[in-house]
Computed example of a mutant assay.
Amino acid sequence: MALTQTDLDALDLAIARGTLSVEFDGRKHTYQTTSQLIAARDHVARIVNAGALNRGPRVFGFRFTTTRGD
Rank of each mutant, 00 (worst) to 15 (best):
residue 1 M to S: 10
residue 1 M to C: 03
residue 2 A to K: 14
residue 3 L to Q: 12
residue 4 T to H: 04
residue 4 T to M: 02
residue 5 Q to T: 06
residue 5 Q to E: 11
residue 6 T to N: 09
residue 6 T to H: 08
residue 6 T to W: 03
residue 7 D to M: 04
residue 7 D to N: 11
residue 9 D to M: 06
residue 9 D to F: 02
residue 10 A to P: 03
residue 10 A to Q: 09
residue 11 L to Y: 05
residue 11 L to K: 09
residue 11 L to V: 07
residue 13 L to A: 15
residue 13 L to C: 02
residue 14 A to Q: 00
residue 14 A to C: 05
residue 14 A to P: 06
residue 15 I to K: 11
residue 15 I to S: 08
residue 15 I to Q: 11
residue 15 I to Y: 04
residue 16 A to I: 03
residue 16 A to P: 01
residue 16 A to G: 03
residue 17 R to Y: 08
residue 18 G to V: 05
residue 18 G to P: 03
residue 18 G to R: 09
residue 18 G to W: 05
residue 19 T to W: 01
residue 19 T to D: 12
residue 21 S to A: 15
residue 21 S to D: 11
residue 22 V to G: 09
residue 22 V to D: 08
residue 22 V to E: 03
residue 23 E to R: 13
residue 24 F to C: 02
residue 25 D to S: 13
residue 26 G to H: 10
residue 27 R to N: 07
residue 27 R to L: 09
residue 27 R to P: 00
residue 28 K to I: 06
residue 28 K to N: 13
residue 29 H to L: 07
residue 30 T to R: 14
residue 30 T to Y: 02
residue 30 T to Q: 13
residue 30 T to S: 12
residue 31 Y to I: 01
residue 32 Q to F: 06
residue 32 Q to V: 14
residue 33 T to Q: 05
residue 33 T to V: 03
residue 34 T to P: 04
residue 34 T to Q: 15
residue 34 T to V: 12
residue 35 S to W: 00
residue 36 Q to T: 07
residue 36 Q to S: 07
residue 36 Q to M: 13
residue 37 L to P: 03
residue 38 I to W: 01
residue 38 I to H: 02
residue 38 I to L: 14
residue 39 A to G: 05
residue 39 A to R: 13
residue 40 A to R: 08
residue 40 A to D: 07
residue 41 R to Y: 04
residue 41 R to K: 13
residue 41 R to W: 04
residue 41 R to I: 01
residue 41 R to M: 07
residue 42 D to C: 03
residue 43 H to Y: 08
residue 44 V to C: 05
residue 44 V to I: 14
residue 46 R to I: 10
residue 46 R to M: 05
residue 47 I to G: 00
residue 47 I to Q: 14
residue 48 V to H: 08
residue 48 V to A: 08
residue 48 V to G: 01
residue 49 N to W: 11
residue 50 A to L: 07
residue 50 A to Y: 02
residue 51 G to M: 06
residue 51 G to L: 09
residue 52 A to V: 02
residue 52 A to K: 15
residue 53 L to T: 08
residue 53 L to Q: 09
residue 54 N to C: 00
residue 56 G to A: 12
residue 56 G to D: 09
residue 57 P to D: 12
residue 57 P to T: 09
residue 57 P to F: 11
residue 57 P to V: 12
residue 58 R to E: 14
residue 58 R to A: 14
residue 58 R to P: 00
residue 59 V to H: 02
residue 60 F to G: 07
residue 60 F to H: 04
residue 60 F to R: 13
residue 60 F to M: 12
residue 60 F to V: 15
residue 62 F to P: 03
residue 63 R to I: 15
residue 63 R to C: 08
residue 63 R to Q: 13
residue 63 R to V: 15
residue 63 R to K: 15
residue 64 F to C: 14
residue 64 F to N: 12
residue 65 T to A: 12
residue 66 T to P: 05
residue 66 T to W: 00
residue 67 T to L: 10
residue 67 T to I: 07
residue 68 R to F: 06
residue 69 G to N: 06
residue 69 G to E: 11
residue 70 D to G: 11
